[in-house]
């Protein structure tokens, strides 16, 4: 069906989207990279220059700590989400179509929620006056209600909440296309449901699991508000710090340098995920 584009009017079709994406995505990206080499001016904004000092700041212990924390937190979120979402998605794809659709609507609704609203929701649920500890007190599990935020637990919970629907939707295609005869064969040969899940399904989708882990890791790296709303400043991640430098410290060059760094980290992980994902199709 596909033909080679023949004349100008065929090319005109793609010119508009290509132009829009070039002007409003590639050019801003280029400007950001350029700004990352600019010189910051105290009290003003920045001035054109070619300095490496914005990148040199990466070499400090402070930055190494933030980077280590961001990567570790994102990895932890990815692992928790995949451990929860893999069996969940498997069960979901075995439900009737109607049940699946209801769940998908719910998952999409949670996924589309603003980070502001998720942060607000969890800070309410973990608060002293309206929070879950009031329920524990009513049940006699605790003496007095207490606040569970800010803290590392709150940040982790909020980020898992945000990333869980994403994880399910990334796993959903692979699991819903899984050949049902695989499990049937294992069951006929006398394997228990739990054993056939761990010995047949998990190995069959090993590569999907790894690429999902990486995709969720990149997704969690992008979380920019929850550490700020639910955590202490020591729990701020790279994304939060970039926003803070750009908006509140007016240090665009340093923010841009950190963003370039974040792009490189994310892109290399996405490339890895694509590579792993591709292996599954070729066997």
């Amino acid at each position: 069906m596909r033909i080679k584009p023949r004349n100008a009017s065929d090319y005109a079709l793609i010119a508009f989207p290509a132009g829009m994406l070039a002007l409003f995505f590639v050019v801003p990206f280029g400007i950001m990279i350029t700004v990352s080499f600019f010189q910051r001016v105290q009290g003003a904004f920045y001035e054109p220059a070619f300095v490496l000092e914005n990148y040199a700041r990466f070499l400090s212990m402070f930055f190494a700590g933030i980077l280590g924390f961001s990567l570790g937190l994102a990895a932890l979120v990815a692992v928790i989400c995949v451990i929860l979402a893999f069996p969940f998605t498997y069960m979901l794809t075995r439900q009737s179509r109607r049940v699946q659709v209801v769940w998908l609507v719910f998952l999409l609704s949670v996924l589309s929620l603003s980070e502001v609203l998720i942060g607000f929701g969890w800070s309410t649920l973990l608060s002293r006056t309206a929070g879950i500890t009031n329920l524990f007190v009513a049940l006699g599990l605790m003496e007095t209600p207490m606040s569970l935020t800010p803290g590392f637990g709150a940040v982790l919970t909020g980020m898992v909440y945000q990333a869980f629907p994403y994880t399910v939707l990334v796993l959903y295609p692979a699991l819903s296309r899984l050949d049902p005869t695989l499990v049937e064969a294992a069951r006929t040969l006398g394997s228990s449901p739990a054993r056939s899940f761990f010995n047949v399904i998990v190995p069959a989708l090993r590569n999907s699991i790894v690429s999902t882990l990486i995709m969720v890791f990149v997704f969690a790296l992008g979380c920019y508000l929850l550490p700020q709303l639910l955590g202490r400043p020591s729990q701020w991640t790279l994304s939060v710090l970039i926003t803070d430098q750009a908006i509140y410290q007016s240090n665009m060059p340093f923010a841009a340098a950190m963003a370039v760094f974040l792009v490189l980290v994310s892109l290399s992980f996405v490339a890895l995920a694509l590579l792993v994902g591709k292996r599954e199709h070729t066997g």
């Binding site: 793609i14 989207p17 290509a18 994406l21 070039a22 409003f24 995505f25 590639v26 050019v27 801003p28 990206f29 400007i31 950001m32 700004v35 904004f45 990149v218 790296l221 992008g222 920019y224 994304s239 970039i242 926003t243 750009a246 665009m252 923010a255 841009a256 963003a259 974040l262 792009v263 994310s266 892109l267 996405v270």
Partner: peptide, 28 residues
């Protein structure tokens, strides 16, 4: 044309703060 397609998919895969910062520097 796949390059244009990848550009169309990129904003969603990269951390949003990157696109946001790109727009901030672009518009200013």
């Amino acid at each position: 044309a796949r390059i244009v397609q990848i550009l169309g998919l990129a904003p969603f895969i990269l951390p949003p703060v990157i696109t946001a910062l790109g727009f901030l520097s672009f518009w200013s």
